[in-house]
Design a protein around this nucleic acid. Structure first.
Length: 581
RNA sequence: GGCCCCGUAGCUCAGCUGGAUAGAGCAACUGACUUCUAAUCAGUAGGUCGUACGUUCGAAUCGUACCGGGGUCACCA
């Protein structure tokens, strides 16, 4: 039962009737009509700006329109009262019986509460992580990984058909460096005293591959042609690296549906194919691009290169497809990759990238525009940097020395659940401080703790209820006993719970999973408040030993809260705690 | 210099895509444990929403210009 949407539908119906009756001609942007929880107590349970949106579109007095909508709205059986306030808000007070029904529904539907059908089976391709297969995942990958994973869960929950995809950069030059580094490690294992070359991956994690090579081939690789040797090392090392990366993802509770290999696309002439399509459209040409203005390049050299005419689609400059030596740029296979995504018939294509790739977005958008014949929604979500803080100072990663803070290192300190929650405790386009000490603290400052604590408290209360034979409900009908109406503090919680389907919808619509984390904090807060609240001299208690009817009802409220928290945490990929550690 | 992101309470951040008197947490101050977990709760205080114009019934939200912070800028990935 998505009360906000129910009310909105009612209002939209009234609005369209009104438009028809009055024979208004102007188009109305109904997306601007919202139903929301008002900020203040005296503004009803829900309010809508419908009259004002309509008033603007039709150049009509919003209060007059509000009057008309009010009279039509007030008849609905759900609604107790509607008032017209301020510049034209309609403040709606719900029939109190509805809150009982909501509790019944949540307790009955459990994990399905909030599962709206918003995606209507549309196919979504969600690409995230896509780390180069040259090393294990590190701090720089975590945020995008968690963000993408939760977004995929969210979109699936609301009815999209999601493919989680990882683009494996196994075709580019960095793989050459990887192969060379491993060969040096191999020689090292054979007892040769060798220093790693300038361009290499210095981390220790490549040593096991070298050991494997020694185990399997002894010193035979030394005598092979470089081409043969590299082929052997390449195949083995990419597989090995991908196993490590998959294990890293798994330890964060993330699983991909598809690993898309750049190399296999190259092998099947994917690049040439998509380029020839673009060529037919006149979007590929040989030319020279200007040096960026305002920045001095000591080594700038005008070069004729193969270019993609992305300026045709609002990009700043045309983008090179081939380097001056004739090999592909990074962009060429990526262009073909995105063309491939489109070929596979997705309705929505989403890339999750680190903010340092921001400059890349406009050319990707240009690619999509160049290739799409039908309507495809394309969005790039940029995820900002994470700073790791310990003992109140920032831990630095040094790329050159190969000193990365690996995901596995992080997991030694904090659980995957904590990492996941914190990664969503900010909007994706603001930088994030990850304070390890805070995340280990058992207090309200630690949001995961706070939400889990609410959940654990509920579990504990329900258990107590069970011991006293008050819970679980024998039948739902038991909730309809003769009990006093909900108290104000209970209503605060219930109204919060009623927002859940709307929170899901908004998070999914705007691809903003952090909203769920914030919402859960609010639910936990309302619950803790109720748990702790006292009315007069006696404290509020869920278990009222004298009155089974009252007790059952309060326990049902607690149960509903537990369900919503659990649903939310599950969407975040977090298993709620039944008792605190 | 171009482009992208950010600027909201002392600090860290929300703000439902243009609505009503601006919202949390931390830090500060005051108060609440004979309990279903006080690991919590209640309250007080704290604001020219970076600045200036503009758009309109109405702006933290949209537009333009500027200021400040971060990222990025062919032949890397």
């Amino acid at each position: 039962m998505d009360i906000i949407n129910i009310l909105r539908d009612k209002i939209l119906n009234i609005v369209s009737e009104l438009v028809e009756d009055k024979n208004f001609k102007q188009p109305i942007n109904i997306n601007n009509i919202v139903v929301e929880r008002p900020k203040r107590q005296n503004q009803g349970d829900f309010s809508t700006n419908a009259a004002m949106v309509l008033g603007k579109a039709l150049s009509y007095n919003p209060r007059d329109l509000g009057e008309i909508i009010l009279f039509k709205l007030i008849d609905a059986e759900l609604i107790n009262n509607v008032s017209l306030d301020g510049p034209g808000f309609l403040n709606i007070t719900i029939n109190p019986k509805f809150w009982d029904r909501l509790i019944v529904e949540i307790v009955t539907n459990t994990f399905k509460y909030g599962q709206i059908s918003f995606g209507s089976g549309k196919k979504v391709n969600l690409e995230f992580v896509s780390a180069n297969p040259t090393g294990p995942l590190h701090l720089g990958h975590v945020r995008g990984a968690v963000f993408g994973d939760v977004l995929s869960r969210l979109l699936e929950f609301v009815g999209f058909k999601v493919t989680r995809e990882y683009y494996v950069n196994d075709g580019g030059a960095q793989i050459g460096i990887l192969v060379r580094t491993i060969y040096y490690r191999y020689l090292e294992k054979l007892g040769e005293c060798i220093e790693l070359p300038e361009e290499s991956y210095p981390g220790d994690y490549l040593i096991p591959i070298a050991e494997k090579l020694v185990e399997k081939y002894g010193n035979k690789l030394k005598n092979l042609e470089e081409f043969e040797r590299d082929k052997i090392i390449r195949g083995l090392s990419i597989d090995y690296m991908m196993e490590i990366i998959k294990a890293d993802l798994k330890s964060l509770n993330i699983e991909m549906d598809n690993y898309f290999s750049e190399q296999s696309m190259i092998n099947s002439n994917g690049i040439e194919e998509s380029l020839s399509t673009l060529k037919d459209k006149g979007l590929i040409y040989k030319g020279i691009i200007d040096a960026p203005k305002g920045k001095t390049y000591t080594d700038w050299e005008a070069r004729e290169q193969l270019l993609f005419k992305s300026t045709e689609f609002d990009d700043d400059i045309d983008r090179p497809i081939k380097k001056s030596d004739g090999s592909w740029t990074y962009f060429a296979p990526d262009l073909a990759y995105h063309a491939d995504k489109l070929k596979r018939g997705f309705d929505v294509v989403i890339d999750v990238l680190g903010a340092d790739h921001g400059g890349y977005v406009s050319r990707l958008k240009a690619v999509i525009k160049a290739f799409t014949e039908r309507k495809v929604e394309f969005e790039v979500k940029l995820v900002q940097l994470v700073k790791l803080i310990k003992n109140k100072s920032v831990l630095k990663m040094s790329k050159r020395a190969g000193e990365y803070i690996l995901i596995q290192d992080l997991l030694k300190e904090v659980s995957a659940d904590v990492i996941r929650f914190v990664m969503l405790s900010r909007n994706n386009d603001v930088p994030l401080d990850f304070d390890i000490d805070l995340m280990l603290s058992k207090s309200k400052e630690n949001p995961v703790f706070y939400v889990n604590y609410a959940h654990a408290r509920i579990v504990s209360v329900l258990k107590r209820g069970e011991e006293l034979s008050m819970w679980p409900l024998a039948k739902i009908g038991d909730l309809e006993g003769n009990v006093p109406p909900f108290m104000e503090s209970e209503l605060t919680l219930i109204k919060k719970l009623s927002e859940w389907p709307n929170v899901v919808r908004q998070s999914a619509r705007y691809h903003e999973p952090h909203r769920i984390a914030f919402y859960l904090n609010e639910v936990a807060s309302s619950f803790h408040s109720l748990y702790q609240s006292s009315s007069g001299s006696t404290n509020y208690r869920f278990i009222v030993e004298g009155s089974k009817e009252l007790c059952v009802r309060r326990l049902a409220l607690a149960k509903s809260t537990q369900i919503v928290i659990k649903n939310g945490l599950t969407l975040l990929g977090i298993v709620p705690l039944d008792e605190m550690y």
